[in-house]
Design a protein around this nucleic acid. Structure first.
Length: 332
DNA sequence: CTTGCAATAT
DNA sequence: AATATTGCAA
């Protein structure tokens, strides 16, 4: 029974494969790259103080995120009647838009979990590769009684992409905020639970600790996942510990660049699959040296018209469909 | 009620 | 092996 799932996170306008409606109004709008992150002060600190301009309240990613959610919920409230013109499938459950994009059978759970075919895939990333996610919505129900207990989420698979998102968020949060709940919110991945994050965070911290303690030894093949993601130097707390092992000389005097949170993307439906236990994890050979992030994936095939949207994260990294609940499958 | 963490469970 | 759960003390 080891079922695992991948949360696929695609972009917002995932209405339909052949969708261009969005572009109608979207055309001409600045791209994410042109926009200044909301929480970023418009006026440099130095400048502001020089002119005695009252500093804008420092907004954190949390504030922005909260604001986004408020906006979305209010929109949801008033425009839910418009079924046609909106491709935004807000994260609400069975919204109208659920039509094709998300074939929700059970339609009354926020998470759709169903059995799906056994296909496994990995994502490819890297040089503008394409990625995709499998989203097989099968109407096949597994074993549990459908009665009322619909809550068995499949195991989350921390794909490199998901992990990167995690690391980025953690890195950009101030330590005191880097707690499960917050991280979860900022990652903004549908279906991700606090527990998922807490569990991963726990492991991640152990990994970091190990790294600092024995920086010399080179247990090369530690965790493939963690090892492949550079450790942010955000480990320094304001006032407390100070360690850091591999930090980079990051001296930017003046205005530290605050990264921005992930774009809202409340559409992704976790598509899951159930899996088999795994034992043969056949994904990628463990020692794939060199490839720092988003390493390769594997064989893939198939993508849905809906989720081929890709997004860029604030660092300029390109996320494709990402996470995706997947089986741990059996193939091999 | 949320966190951090270790011990377990799957 | 990777995640999830659980139990407890903060």
């Amino acid at each position: 029974m080891g079922e695992e799932v991948r949360i696929t996170d695609y972009d917002d306008n995932v209405g339909g494969g052949d969708e261009d409606r969005v572009s109608e109004w979207e055309v001409g709008l600045p791209t994410a790259d042109d926009l200044t992150p909301l929480f970023q002060a418009l006026i440099p600190q130095e400048l502001a103080s020089a002119f005695s301009i009252s500093p804008e309240p420092r907004r954190s990613v949390l504030d922005v995120n909260r604001a986004s959610q408020n906006t979305l919920s209010s929109l949801r409230g008033q425009s839910q009647a418009l079924s046609s013109s909106n491709n935004f499938n807000f994260k609400s459950f069975n919204e109208d838009g659920a039509r094709d994009a998300l074939v929700v059978e059970g339609h009354d759970a926020d998470l759709i979990r169903e059995g799906s075919d056994s296909r496994k895939l990995q994502n490819m990333e890297g040089g503008g590769g394409a990625e995709e996610a499998d989203s097989a919505l099968r109407t096949e129900n597994c074993s549990d009684d459908p009665s009322a207990r619909a809550l068995k989420r499949p195991r989350l698979v921390w794909t490199p992409q998901l992990h990167k998102r995690f690391v980025d968020v953690v890195a950009h949060l101030e330590i005191k905020n880097a707690v499960p709940k917050t991280i979860m919110q900022l990652m903004n991945v549908e279906g991700l639970t606090r527990e998922n994050v807490a569990s991963h965070l726990q492991k991640y911290r152990l990994y970091l600790k190990r790294m600092q303690e024995v920086s010399n030894e080179g247990p090369s093949s530690s965790d493939q996942l963690f090892a492949s993601t550079p450790v942010p130097q955000s480990l320094n707390e304001s006032g407390g510990n100070g360690h850091g092992q591999q930090n980079n000389s990051n001296n930017g005097h003046m205005g530290m660049p605050i990264p921005m949170p992930y774009p809202m993307q409340m559409v992704p439906m976790p598509v899951l699959g159930m899996a088999h236990h795994g034992q043969g994890h056949m994904g990628m050979p463990v020692g794939t040296p060199g490839v720092p992030e988003g390493f390769h994936g594997g064989y893939e095939s198939h993508h849905h018209p809906y989720n081929m949207v890709h997004q860029m994260d604030w660092s300029g990294n390109n996320f494709g469909s990402v996470a995706s609940y997947r089986y741990t499958n059996d193939d091999k």
